[in-house]
Design a protein around this nucleic acid. Structure first.
Lengths: 337, 337
DNA sequence: GCAAAAATTGTAAACGTTTACATTCAGGGT
DNA sequence: ACCCTGAATGTAAACGTTTACAATTTTTGC
């Protein structure tokens, strides 16, 4: 493959001039420019962005770390980031953690070794010391989905606490008093934990007791929702409603409840979280908390870009709005009209 | 940031030895190795993969080009690639084309400038001369979803022609004779075109005439399915069945048909393509052609890795099986019992 | 025409690693 | 003690750009 040196020789100029033709064409005289361009053509020259990155210490690449690309919510965020990044001329390196903290740490390391200019991270735990280190080193990154109120970490997220509260209140408003929650494992999802805090607080403020048998932590999947609900229904006094910290869990719960012979929503009310496309297609339609995933990705990227370009140190704390979507999976409990 | 040179100095060895500790630890004596490791620790050394890539001309990175991460099928393929790549110690650079050929070309160029070791491409057009060039240059890449039978291009795909044929035959078997097809635009999706060929051939072999009013080309989205079906229903003799080259289109068609007052599947039968999760949740369940997306990604990556590592030149042509999934969106036309 | 200013181009070092080749070292056999 | 062998380590060039600075050319104002 030919290099800038070959081109320079062919055009009878220095490598510096060729470099200028590539990067700041207006800084070189028209005549030389066309001569260089012609030489490039003749040499079948292809620019080596790696060498540039090496010389400038800027790769125009960012790393994106998410739990799984298979969840439509993360796919939407990814699209948001990807589109804005492409518009800004940056490339995106994708990594999936499968909600595993160790994979997350490994990805952070690998991406930094690859000299990415910044990171967008959907973390399992915003208090991870690794993130503190990144802050301390002044490395540009933004955390998505979570919102840390204090501290020097930038984040663009939603108020998970408030989302949990809204969902629970919705069930209480419909007359429920025995409300279970199925959450992603707290150790691998602080979002899940935030939603749980909201759930508990809402119960308390409405004078309901929090029953720890009514909390299940599990993995984020349809199958585990299906499974866990069966267990909850076997309790002595089973719940009349369930709040799930993710729509897949919620839809799994609906299926599991039907398998157990329940009629929905009369026998069991369900609220989810995310508002994935599927939520409006199940029967009954799933009541859920809509999370602006695309927007979060887009704004997250913009915040990161700002940090990268301007080098600013002031952290961004952006909290996006949540919305309760009502479709029909919640009804008053039996005998409560 | 400290470099290999600082570490070498701190440990009292040469840079070559430090490099060996990193890459071939068994080639350096235990005592020196621990000394070097300690020096790395002391210097807070972080490996620079970019510099390695520059020196070795291997970045351990591949580029992945897909139309959109938002379609669950592509998300699954992406997961397949991503997982295998991570296991092999490679990173994945993600690019979305939105079915735009120019964006595709641009991504290919950008990724090559970044010196990726190879590409996995879901192309809008496998006959694109750009791909021929890649082959001519001996650059490793594999094409997903499409299957080109002849030629030196590696591909791991499905037989789109056969898929189209299967779907159409399914409708004919149910007694339909007026079968429309809604396809993605041919210019931006050769897959769509292959499915159409199968559709036409199947009609012909069953003695049915191909009516060109019954073909609609549009964009791959729920909304356009919804829209296009309304037009088809306004024809003098509207179709009794529709084959859509993608599940989103098919689900849009179901919605649109309902909006027009039709009862499904009695008034209109629908077959889709892909088998996304949504397909089993709509009512009635969508009959569709299942496409093994995850497997395709995984196998595609393996084929690429083989090419990269072994440097083999013999192209891989892998054709994965398709399966007709019957759920209830197809019924005999009215008055045909 | 001329000097000064501005625009253009050239020179060469720097970026952090790998690696072919050369050199040194350790230890076994005599 | 010496030679030999193989293992361990060192030397230094190479990878393809960018960029500070210097040198040269062109333009401007008079």
């Amino acid at each position: 493959m030919s290099t800038i040196i070959d081109v320079a020789r062919a055009a009878g100029v220095s490598t510096a001039t060729v470099s200028r033709v590539i990067n700041t064409p207006q800084a070189v005289r028209e005549a030389t420019r066309t001569r260089v361009l012609a030489a490039m053509e003749a040499c079948h020259y292809r620019y080596n962005a790696l060498a540039r990155g090496f010389a400038t210490k800027r790769t125009r690449t960012i790393g994106l770390i998410i739990p799984t690309i298979t969840n439509p919510g993360f796919a939407e965020s990814t699209r948001g980031i990807q589109e804005r990044a492409a518009a800004a001329g940056l490339s995106v390196l994708l990594g999936n953690t499968n909600y595993d903290p160790e994979t997350e740490e490994k990805l952070i390391r690998v991406f930094r070794e690859m000299q990415v200019d910044g990171l967008v991270i959907t973390t399992t735990n915003p208090n991870n010391p690794i993130l503190k280190n990144l802050v301390a080193e002044g490395f540009p990154f933004v955390v998505l989905y979570s919102t840390v109120r204090r501290g020097h970490m930038s984040c663009v997220g939603v108020d998970n606490y408030r989302g949990g509260y809204m969902a629970t209140q919705h069930l209480i408003d419909n007359g429920h008093r025995r409300i279970a929650m199925i959450a992603g494992a707290f150790r691998s999802s602080d979002k899940s934990r935030g939603r749980w805090d909201g759930y508990r607080q809402c119960l308390r403020e409405n004078g309901l007791v929090y029953d720890k048998d009514f909390l299940a932590q599990t993995t984020y999947s349809l199958a585990s929702g299906r499974e866990v609900i069966q267990q909850l229904l076997r309790l002595e006094t089973p719940p009349t409603a369930v709040f799930c910290s993710n729509d897949y869990l919620a839809i799994g719960v609906m299926e599991g409840a039907r398998d157990a012979g329940l009629e929905l929503p009369a026998d069991l009310s369900v609220v989810g979280f995310d508002d994935i496309p599927l939520a409006s297609y199940v029967t009954p339609g799933l009541d859920t908390i809509r999370l602006p995933a695309y927007e979060m990705g887009a704004l997250g990227f913009e915040a990161l870009l700002e940090r990268i370009e301007k080098g600013g140190q002031t952290p961004v704390h952006r909290m996006l709005g949540l919305e309760l979507i009502v479709r029909g999976s919640v009804a008053p409990p039996r005998g409560n009209a």
